[in-house]
Structures are given as C-alpha cells and as structure tokens.
Amino acid sequence: MIELAGVSKTFASRSGAVRALDDVSLTVERGQIYGVIGRSGAGKSTLIRTVNMLEAPDSGTITVDGVDMTSLGEEELRVARQRIGMVFQHFNLLNSRTVRGNVEFALEVYGVAKAERARRSAEILELVGLTEKADARIAELSGGQKQRVGIARALAGNPSVLLSDEATSALDPDTTEEILGLLRSLRDELGLTILLITHEMDVVKSLCDAAALMRDGRVVEHGLLTDLVMRPESELSDGLFPLGELPEGRDTTVIEITFVGLASQEPVITRLARTHELDVSLLGAAIETLGGKQTGRTRLELPGSPAAITAAVEDLRAQGLSVRVVREAS
C-alpha cells in the first residue's frame, strides 16, 4: 500500500548538511497499522512527510496505492493527496471555522457541492464522535476533541491511507488511549492503512501491527511486532518488554525466552528443571498483547555448569523458541 524504496533526503543547514533520510526502504501492507519510532531528530517526520510529498525526497521512489508519488505533477499530486489523510501533533486546525467548518474546508477543496458537504461532514463527525460539537469553535475544544477534528478532516476525502505525525504526543495518557482506540476502529471499519510516527513505545505496543526503528535517518530495524519479538537481539522488542536492569553481583547466566501464546510458557520452565536438572529462578516476566496475540517474555536465571546451560539453550531453540542469552557466567 505504501512503499518507500531507497529514499534519501538531505537538508542544508547553517551547521552543515543534515542527512535526515538515508536510503530508507519500508513497506506498509494494506490495512496495516505501522509505527515508526525513534529519538528526536531521527528523521521520523521527514519520513512521513515524503509519503504525501510535503517533503520531496532527493532520491528514491514512494508508491502509495500503486501511484508513484515522485513522478506526479502539481495537479496530479493534489488529487493524490486527497486519498492520503494526515493528522498532526499540534492539530493544525482553522481557528476561523467551527468544527464542522474544518471538515467542510476539506470538502470545499475537493469541490463537493454545498448540500453534499453538509451531509458528508455530519457523517464524518458522527464517525469520530463529535456530532454534539459540530458548531463549537476550535478554541472551545479539549486536546482530544481537537485531534478528533483533525482526524475528521483527514477522513473527508475518503482516504485509503492515514498519516499521523505524533498525533497523541500533545495529549494526556487517557486521551491518548481514546484517540488510539479511534484510529484502531477506523482501520477496522474503513480498512484504512495507517502509518504513524511516535516516540512512545506504548503507542506501538497498543496499536501497531508492524514497526520500524529509526536512528540518524536510517531504518535500523523493522518488521511485524510478532516477528520482532522473536528476534532475540531486537532493540524494538526490548522496548516492548521492559524487564528492567539485570541483577548485579551474581555470577550466573541469564536468559530471556519469548513466547507467543502463554500456554507454552509453563512447560518450558518445567522442562528446564526436569530434563536439564537446572534450578531455574524467574527474574522477571512481561506479557503484552502484540498484533492481537498474547506475547510474553520471561527472564530466567540459570545456575549450573556452562555445558549444561548450553545444552539447555540449544534444546529450547530446537523447539522453536526465541532464546537470548543476556549474560553468561564467567
């Protein structure tokens, strides 16, 4: 649905050239919610802005719904943008208009006739739960309501793709949850493909099917969350399962096992104890619902001879479990 291939972008600034995007390739499937996470300045906003060509890349191609965005002329680009909604961290709403007026603004741009505008805007406001506030001014709204208006405006063109640049970063946790819920239901009901930028792992965790981690303009890791968690060395999965620091001052081996489906967890620990006669102790565990599946990670401390531990780890891996040796006893 969205495909970026070898996209690069360099900005000239007073302190020299900044390579905001460095050969970025990324694919978002239809109906997916895809999160891009990274530190400030990693290039996340630049990335999402290239998708609708608010920022033209220096090189690379961007395909949205089969259309090569980089090849479009000004007029064709305007038409293509109507099918790509965008929501912003600071909402960017027109204060000169009411809630309804902001939705109608988009409809006016699309050349929708007056009567049809009234009908469509009412329909969209209903969808985002703002029917009561239709005639309110923007200044009278809470942050969460403002973002609903932003989403309503983005939906006005019946988009197939929704881009969200930190849409919840200016909101409190409860409101964030509300807006994320709205995005999820829009994906489910309208089949939207959503590409979102965030710096909060919780957003990725609760909403996304797939994610990419950006650093210094590069995508350093990407994939489905359910796949990422099974990759032992994945930084993204560390963020998904915050197990804290390792215990200090003990010379023991520590491993982490990631399970999809919690039923498999118990037998593993039992097996380690029985088959390998290891006196396992549980250091920590986290359970998350990722991409609709219950997923857990357990951190275990394994006392015992290096040979026994190696055998145990190999045995676990042979069963198709994701095992990562976090620390080895010396």
């Binding site: 608010l54 305007r78 960017n92 741009v109 063109g157």
Partner: peptide
C-alpha cells in the same frame, strides 16, 4: 502548520490564500 495541513489536503495555492491564510 495550517498551510501545511491545507497542502496535505490537496488545496490549491489560491485556496491556501483564500481559505487559510486570509481567514486565519
């Protein structure tokens, strides 16, 4: 940001001036 939001919708330059810049 308001102009940007207008562009993201696909507004023409004239629409950006007449519907965003001047009213705002």
């Amino acid at each position: 940001g308001l102009m940007e939001a207008g562009s993201s919708i696909g507004a023409t330059k004239w629409q950006l001036v007449s519907k965003v810049l001047i009213p705002e």
